[in-house]
Simulated scan of single mutants.
Amino acid sequence: MANGNAANALQGAEKTEQGLCFKGLIMEPIIDKCEGCDRAVAVDDTKYCPSYAKPARKWAHGVCNFATHVKAEKTKTGEIKINPLKASKRAARGR
């Protein structure tokens, strides 16, 4: 684990009949798209995401914004895709 804080992220979590309970939330195990992420924490041979209780939902509409192992996509011309709203705000600030 590259991040020392990630190892302690689920400290205090306990196994219940429903699954891993952490701060009142039932944590679901990570999915295959999460493999390789530095945030994933192993608890009793099962990996969980301390950033989001339902990792599959974060991947439902594209790339998870918490993923540390996914790089930004490039367009056919080699430019990195940027959210148009963020691009307009950056342009307004002069970046």
Rank of each mutant, 00 (worst) to 15 (best):
A9I: 10
A9D: 13
L10W: 04
L10A: 07
L10P: 09
L10R: 05
L10V: 04
Q11I: 08
Q11F: 08
A13R: 01
A13Q: 08
E14D: 05
E14V: 13
E14A: 08
T16F: 02
T16M: 03
T16Q: 01
E17W: 03
E17K: 09
Q18A: 12
G19N: 01
G19L: 04
L20Y: 04
L20M: 07
L20V: 10
L20E: 05
C21L: 10
F22H: 10
F22Q: 02
K23C: 12
K23D: 12
G24N: 01
G24M: 05
G24I: 12
L25K: 05
L25R: 08
L25H: 02
I26W: 03
I26L: 10
I26N: 03
M27I: 11
M27Y: 01
E28F: 01
P29T: 11
P29N: 10
P29W: 07
I30W: 11
I30Q: 08
I31R: 04
I31Q: 01
I31E: 13
I31M: 12
D32V: 15
D32I: 15
K33V: 03
K33E: 14
E35S: 07
E35H: 04
G36I: 06
G36A: 12
G36Q: 03
D38T: 14
D38P: 02
D38Y: 05
D38R: 07
R39S: 13
R39T: 09
R39W: 10
R39G: 06
R39V: 07
A40E: 03
A40Y: 07
A40H: 07
A42P: 11
V43I: 13
V43M: 01
D44T: 08
D44P: 00
D45S: 04
D45W: 05
D45A: 06
T46L: 06
T46W: 02
K47L: 11
K47P: 00
K47E: 15
Y48G: 03
C49N: 05
C49T: 03
C49Q: 00
C49I: 08
P50V: 00
P50G: 04
P50T: 00
S51V: 07
S51N: 11
Y52M: 06
Y52A: 01
A53M: 11
A53S: 06
A53I: 02
A53F: 02
P55R: 11
P55Q: 14
P55T: 12
P55A: 14
A56T: 07
R57Q: 03
W59T: 15
W59Q: 01
W59P: 10
W59K: 08
A60D: 15
H61R: 14
H61I: 13
G62C: 02
V63D: 13
V63H: 02
C64R: 12
C64P: 01
C64A: 15
N65L: 05
N65V: 06
T68G: 15
T68K: 09
T68M: 09
H69M: 14
H69Y: 12
H69G: 14
H69E: 14
V70G: 04
K71N: 15
K71V: 15
K71M: 15
K71H: 13
K71L: 15
A72T: 12
A72E: 11
A72P: 13
A72Y: 08
E73C: 06
K74R: 13
K74E: 14
K74I: 12
T75G: 13
K76H: 00
K76Q: 14
K76P: 07
K76G: 09
T77D: 15
T77N: 11
T77R: 11
T77F: 02
G78W: 01
E79S: 10
E79D: 12
E79W: 00
